[in-house]
Structures are given as structure tokens and as C-alpha cells.
Design a binder for these strands. Structure first.
Lengths: 217, 217
DNA sequence: TCGTTTTCTGACCGTATGGTCAGGGTCGAG
DNA sequence: CTCGACCCTGACCATACGGTCAGAAAACGA
């Protein structure tokens, strides 16, 4: 087998440490921003000496880039629900659900992404111009098809996508504000479900999408 | 007249310098985050020596706090359109319009606010728990009234507010991403108008609000 | 066991940053 | 004109931060 795939102790250590560092970095970058984050803070959170971080990731920029790249991959993966959907309502509804789950399970990643974009995407501008642009064009075409088929009202697909991104990611990025307005408590499982249903209902109704089981009369 | 209101040269200088500094600070904080912003950068942008900034604002934290407080006031002011509206569609539609205008005209402020909240609102937590919470409760009551009157579908008013905030502020906070997906060009006046109409249309239809002029048959 | 490679880390360094301050300049009131 | 209050700023300081490095420790293959 290839040398890099060997499952000896060294590789295990490396993999585990990289995982721990990336996870700690994601959290610290999310909570403090790139400028506010320090290698010492990340090291403490990872339970490793600072010098050890620099052994695995040469610079703060490199570590940050790895964090953002990982998030970007997850971001694009959520699109599975949009593709191969039997109809518009199922596809868009499923995509909203998937993104709401992501906001719930990966709030730090969402915040890092938001922060990166807000600051002009200094690190992942190339991804925006290639991968994200291509991805977006593909979904726009799919949405246009649904419009042509009369499954949803005519609407600029871009604004629909922005709306979905904005609304779903808001529950992660502005989670602290939502929590404060919720009496200082995090949303319960029930409240998350209600949020998901509200968002789905308003958007699907807003674009005139009929539920799958209720075909046109 | 009161001493603080005198229009002598000294007061003019003070007012003008504070304005210039706050404006520069808003931009720098928005583009670099609190941690990434430096007093030197803000000073350069304001065209003043760094020491002069510290003459008007003792610390970086104080300057930042003033910036955020100013944004918060503007944020709350946009609610005028929601209050005293003749009906739900006009009120909510007007509020969306006002917030879209704010995203267009004050993108830096929106970003600073987003950044502050994302990082756990270390500076304005008290505002969230008092002013924002009170404001929100008031609007929730108003929305509930519209629901009871049958003007809009039953929906948790909180999620409706979050949706409006998320969608409208997205055009400021994620403006760079939108610009990139728009071929690298900022949205034109026409595109902004389309965005505004799209958002309004989807949300108003999504909550079953009928336009003001088209009363129930 | 031995030599080699990889992992680990305390101590250290140069720089950038927030903040200070003494002293000079400007304005306005009387 | 004079004096006091306010405005301005170059030079400076202490600290914190990203990053380096020599050398110890551990893992590995033979």
C-alpha cells in the first residue's frame, strides 16, 4: 500500500493532532475573528503547546486557510438535496432542511465562512470565482427549469438562493442574538424544528411551490 | 443657550473630527474586524495622527463601542415603517424596503453589527437584553395582532423577524460574495430594485399577506 | 539493538500595536 | 492683549504576538 496510507502509530498521531487543531482553530476563529484569534488561544483549546501547532501548520494563515477550505467543502455538499429531487418543492425544501441542520451542527464553521466573506474573502476569493460560481450557475439552471415547468413562480433564481443562504445561516451566525431574544436560552430541539418549518413554509409558499403530494388540481 | 450647543469654531472642530474618526473606524472595523483593525489604519483613513484619535477616544474599545452604538440607533429607527402602518402588507413591505435601503447605504455598519453579534456581543450584550428585547416584543405583539385579524397566516413572529433581518442584511454582510457571483460587479440600481422586490414578494406571499389595494374579494 | 525519521517543546527573537506624554499651537472670553 | 482652556502630535514605552530553533523524546524499520 502507499506510504501515506499506512495505519501505523505515526500516521494516527498526525491525523488526530491535525483534527484536534483544526477543530480548535475553527472555534477560536469563529469566536474571535482572524485578527482576534491567537495561536496561543488555539493551542490552549487544542491542549497542545504553541510550538506544536507550528509543526503541523507553518503559519496562522495556512491554518486559517485549511479551516476555511474544509468549511467550503461541507457547504457545497449540502446541495445534494437540491439535485436529483423529484420536484421543486422537495428539492428546495430539502435543501433548506439540510442547511438548517448545518447551522445547528456546525455553527462555528458558518461563522468563519461569514467572517471570511464579510472581510472581502482575502483567502478564498479564488474559490468564490471558480467552484462557487460554477455551483451557483448549475443550481440557477435547475431553478429556471422548475420555473419553466410552472412548478414555481417566476423569480430570479439568484435572489432565491441568497434568501435561502441568508435565512438558514442566520440561525448560526446570529445564534447569540437569537439566544438572547429567546430569554438567554439556546433554541430547544422543538424550537429548531419550528424554525425549520417556518422557513420552509414561508419560502415555499413565497415562490408558489406546491407540496409534492398535492399535484395541480 | 446651553454651552454644548454653541457653534464656535472649537465645537465645530470637535464635532467634525469625531465624525471623521467614527466614519473611518466604522469602515476599518467592518473590513478588518475588531482584532484586525489597528488605530494606525483608522488614523490614516481619517487623515489624522494616531495620537489625535486617542485624544478624542481614549481606547480602541471605546471607539468601537461608539461605532456600534451609533449603528444600533439606526437599526432601531428603521422600525418606523412597521409602526403606524395601515395594514400588514404595507408595514412589513415598508420595513423590508427600509432595511434593504440600509444595507445599500450603510453596508459597513451592518457588517460591524454582524461581527459584534457573531463574536458573542461582548460590547452590546446589555443593549440586546434591554433595548432590542423590548423592541422585539413590541413588534411581535403587532404581528400577532395582524395574524388575529387574518391579515397574514399564522406564523411565529420571531421567525418572521429573523427572516427579514437575515435576508435584508445579507445584501450588506455578504455583499462581496454577491458581487463576485454578479460577475465581479456591484449590483446596479436596477438590480438593487429587483432584489428588493424579490425579497418583498417572496416574504409577503410566504405569509399570505394581501397587497393593500387588493382587498379581500 | 541500532540508526534514522518523525514528533515534540521550552526558550527565545523581532516586530507591530495600543497607549502615553511632554510640549507646542490655537481659540475664545474678558 | 492676555490668560486659561482646549487642541494637536512626534517620540516614546511596554506588551503581546507570530514565528524560530536546538535539542530531547518517541516511533519505526532492519
Amino acid at each position: 500500500m502507499a506510504e501515506t496510507d499506512r495505519l501505523n502509530k505515526r500516521n494516527a498521531i498526525r491525523r488526530e493532532n491535525e483534527r484536534v487543531i483544526l477543530s480548535a482553530a475553527e472555534k477560536v476563529f469563529a469566536e474571535a475573528g482572524f485578527g482576534g484569534a491567537t495561536m496561543q488561544l488555539i493551542a490552549d483549546m487544542a491542549g497542545l503547546p504553541k510550538a506544536n501547532l507550528h509543526y503541523y501548520f507553518a503559519t496562522k494563515e495556512e491554518l486559517y486557510r485549511k479551516v476555511v477550505e474544509r468549511i467550503f467543502v461541507i457547504w457545497l455538499q449540502a446541495a445534494d438535496r437540491l439535485d436529483n429531487a423529484p420536484d421543486a418543492a422537495t428539492g428546495i425544501g430539502g435543501y433548506i432542511e439540510a442547511k438548517m441542520e448545518m447551522s445547528r451542527r456546525h455553527p462555528f464553521g458558518s461563522k468563519v465562512w461569514a467572517s471570511e466573506v464579510m472581510h472581502g474573502a482575502p483567502v478564498i476569493q479564488d474559490y468564490l470565482e471558480t467552484a462557487l460560481r460554477d455551483w451557483t450557475e448549475g443550481r440557477i439552471a435547475a431553478i429556471r427549469r422548475w420555473i419553466d415547468e410552472g412548478q414555481i413562480d417566476p423569480i430570479d433564481p439568484r435572489h432565491l438562493l441568497y434568501m435561502i443562504w441568508a435565512t438558514t445561516q442566520h440561525y448560526a451566525d446570529f445564534g447569540h442574538q437569537i439566544e438572547t431574544l429567546n430569554g438567554g436560552r439556546p433554541l430547544s430541539g422543538r424550537q429548531w424544528a419550528e424554525a425549520k418549518e417556518s422557513v420552509k413554509a414561508v419560502i415555499l409558499r413565497g415562490i408558489g411551490a406546491v407540496p409534492a403530494r398535492a399535484g395541480p388540481a
